[in-house]
Amino acid sequence: MDGPRLEVLRHQLHIAWSLTELVVDGLTDRECHWSPAPAAWGVRRAEDGDWYPDWVEPEPDPPPVTTIGWLTWHIDMWWSMVYDHAFGAGALQPGKIRWAGDATAAVARVQQLHEQWATALATLSEGELDAADRTGWPFPAGSPFAQVVGWVNVELMKNAAEIGQLRRIYRHRDPAAPLEDHQ
């Protein structure tokens, strides 16, 4: 039976997803590769044809500025990891996740992850939010699953806000300023 916590968490996901859809609608490759600052983290095509993110663990302090392409990879990475650890084998590693290759594919991947996650949440019961057997990334094993679900909502909203802000800056930048693309 659904309870108040599950209803709130599903509603939060709906709100975060609605914002995400708004900010990725019409996303272009040019926007994904535009560098908003020198040394911004982006996604780059390697000789093997795959797209790799600029990324190290632990993240530098302060964290670097990122491109929109990097942010779409980041959503793919953390959501893939959470889903695999909560509903899959729990064997996926962040370094194995590549960027989708273009804006259209990146948005499609994020949409796919949302559909998987929303479908999985639709099957949960209120009691399963307290279960500790669905955690392990990004929280320590033994954490209540409600923490993971709440974190997904917050992380998606944060990443959507970052993409939205970068798209606004991109649209209003000085047209005479050079575009530093990451490709």
Rank of each mutant, 00 (worst) to 15 (best):
residue 91 A to I: 08
residue 4 P to Q: 15
residue 45 R to G: 00
residue 65 V to A: 15
residue 2 D to P: 07
residue 48 D to G: 06
residue 176 A to P: 04
residue 40 A to D: 03
residue 160 A to K: 06
residue 78 W to I: 13
residue 87 F to V: 04
residue 69 G to M: 05
residue 56 V to R: 15
residue 160 A to M: 01
residue 21 E to W: 06
residue 123 T to Y: 09
residue 138 P to S: 00
residue 70 W to T: 03
residue 145 F to I: 04
residue 174 D to N: 11
residue 28 T to E: 07
residue 107 V to T: 09
residue 170 Y to V: 03
residue 148 V to C: 01
residue 128 E to C: 08
residue 175 P to M: 01
residue 42 G to N: 03
residue 58 P to F: 01
residue 156 L to M: 12
residue 49 G to N: 05
residue 36 P to S: 05
residue 178 P to V: 07
residue 134 R to S: 00
residue 43 V to Q: 11
residue 137 W to C: 01
residue 84 D to W: 08
residue 165 Q to W: 15
residue 106 A to P: 05
residue 69 G to S: 12
residue 67 T to A: 02
residue 30 R to Q: 13
residue 63 P to C: 11
residue 131 A to R: 13
residue 135 T to A: 02
residue 16 A to V: 03
residue 159 N to D: 09
residue 95 G to A: 15
residue 6 L to W: 00
residue 54 D to A: 09
residue 105 A to E: 08
residue 58 P to M: 00
residue 39 A to P: 02
residue 59 E to R: 12
residue 114 H to Y: 15
residue 93 Q to L: 13
residue 14 H to G: 14
residue 127 G to T: 08
residue 105 A to V: 01
residue 156 L to V: 08
residue 49 G to I: 01
residue 168 R to M: 07
residue 161 A to L: 06
residue 70 W to N: 08
residue 138 P to G: 01
residue 116 Q to K: 14
residue 33 H to L: 12
residue 93 Q to V: 06
residue 183 Q to R: 13
residue 152 V to T: 09
residue 31 E to P: 03
residue 56 V to P: 00
residue 180 E to F: 11
residue 54 D to R: 13
residue 125 S to W: 04
residue 80 S to E: 07
residue 92 L to W: 04
residue 12 Q to D: 13
residue 139 F to A: 04
residue 10 R to Q: 02
residue 161 A to D: 08
residue 119 T to I: 03
residue 25 D to M: 12
residue 67 T to I: 02
residue 70 W to H: 13
residue 50 D to G: 09
residue 14 H to W: 07
residue 9 L to T: 01
residue 154 V to Q: 10
residue 143 S to G: 01
residue 155 E to Q: 14
residue 160 A to W: 00
residue 22 L to Y: 09
residue 32 C to I: 07
residue 166 L to C: 02
residue 126 E to A: 02
residue 72 T to F: 07
residue 34 W to H: 10
residue 82 V to H: 07
residue 82 V to A: 14
residue 39 A to W: 14
residue 76 D to F: 11
residue 151 W to V: 05
residue 23 V to Y: 02
residue 96 K to W: 12
residue 117 W to R: 13
residue 147 Q to A: 05
residue 152 V to Y: 00
residue 125 S to C: 05
residue 100 A to R: 15
residue 99 W to M: 04
residue 127 G to A: 15
residue 51 W to D: 06
residue 86 A to C: 03
residue 95 G to Y: 10
residue 9 L to Y: 03
residue 70 W to P: 06
residue 26 G to Y: 08
residue 162 E to I: 05
residue 121 L to V: 02
residue 13 L to W: 14
residue 100 A to H: 10
residue 90 G to S: 00
residue 128 E to P: 10
residue 128 E to T: 08
residue 47 E to W: 05
residue 14 H to Q: 13
residue 177 A to W: 11
residue 35 S to Q: 14
residue 153 N to F: 00
residue 101 G to W: 09
residue 18 S to G: 14
residue 161 A to C: 08
residue 73 W to K: 15
residue 160 A to R: 11
